[in-house]
């Protein structure tokens, strides 16, 4: 089995009638690192959430199926029965990190082991020394071992995001889905998070599918880019093949809203103004509510 993710004819209509994804099909091979790009609201997050089985496709669509690592995630608008076991093999990294802020970083990372720990121990939050060591090693790999005993809420955004990646590592995820992992981070943290993702893709052969708002990061770290516009795939190919014409097609009027520096490949100049983060964050919240 060399196919990590297969999406066939995915269609999603939000309550209220907005079509978020329209007949999306995508195939990802094992070991690939792919960027999903597109304007806010183009369906990037929605697509990733469907692949992880955190959102459910329209029932009416025929032939709609999503499979990860050869196992069905959902089919015809119904989640697979053994979705939890499959989720255990998929790491998900969120834009807002989604760590439990009041738990320690170590415990947050240990959550990645829950699928392997007997239920009675996990309910008591009782982890063995060996398990804690696994968590600490994962934190060391992402470069924040010293943060282990701190509460997750006390960490900076970049550190929290790396802790979230450590959780996926502990999970022994074979596929990592990262939903705008750097949209809330400053350029330095963004670079570190992207390098961490690229490294585990390279060293562990973990398939990485990462949605990015900034094209610069996409072309820099991902050999293959998939572009979405209004819920449809408008480009799927090597990042070298991206042209300015294609970008203005993808982003349309948003170029005015965000500014031209958006498309600069020089990441020190990439915009991380709060307005953009709020813009993207606000939209993803609206999507979650819909």
């Amino acid at each position: 089995m060399t196919e990590a993710v297969r999406v066939s004819r995915l269609r999603k209509t939000f309550r209220g009638g907005k079509v978020a994804l329209n007949d999306v099909s995508l195939s990802v091979q094992r070991g690939e690192m792919i960027a999903l790009i597109g304007a806010s609201g183009s369906g990037k997050s929605t697509l990733l959430r469907h692949i992880a089985g955190l959102a459910i496709a329209d029932r009416a669509q025929t032939g709609c199926e999503i499979a990860v690592l050869g196992n069905s995630v959902q089919q015809g608008g119904r989640l697979a029965r053994d979705i939890r076991a499959l989720r255990g093999r998929i790491g998900f990294v969120f834009q807002q990190f989604n760590l439990v802020e009041r738990l320690t970083v170590e415990t947050n990372v240990l959550v990645g082991l829950l699928i392997r720990v007997p239920l009675w121990r996990s309910l008591l939050r009782w982890f063995t020394r060996a398990e804690k060591e696994i968590a600490q090693n994962a934190l060391a790999r992402v470069g924040i071992r010293e943060c282990c005993p701190q509460r997750a809420g006390t960490l900076s955004g970049g550190q929290q995001q790396r802790a979230a990646i450590a959780r996926a590592l502990v999970q022994k995820a074979e596929v990592i889905l990262a939903d705008e992992p750097i949209a809330s981070l400053d350029p330095e943290s963004s670079r570190r998070v992207m390098e961490t993702l690229a490294r585990i893709n390279r060293e562990d052969g973990i398939t990485v599918l990462v949605s990015l708002h900034q094209v610069g990061y996409a072309t820099r770290y991902c050999p293959r880019v998939v572009a979405l516009r209004n819920g449809e795939i408008v480009f799927d190919g090597p990042s070298a093949a991206i042209t300015p014409a294609l970008l203005s097609d993808i982003y349309g009027s948003e170029i005015d809203a965000i500014g031209d520096e958006e498309f600069s490949v020089d990441d020190t100049r990439l915009p991380t103004r709060p307005a953009i983060a709020a813009f993207a964050g606000g939209l993803s919240l609206a999507e979650a509510r819909a």
């Binding site: 992880a52 255990g88 439990v100 959550v111």
Partner: peptide
Amino acid sequence: EGIRATGA
């Protein structure tokens, strides 16, 4: 949701 995504 972060916890759910790990398969818990």
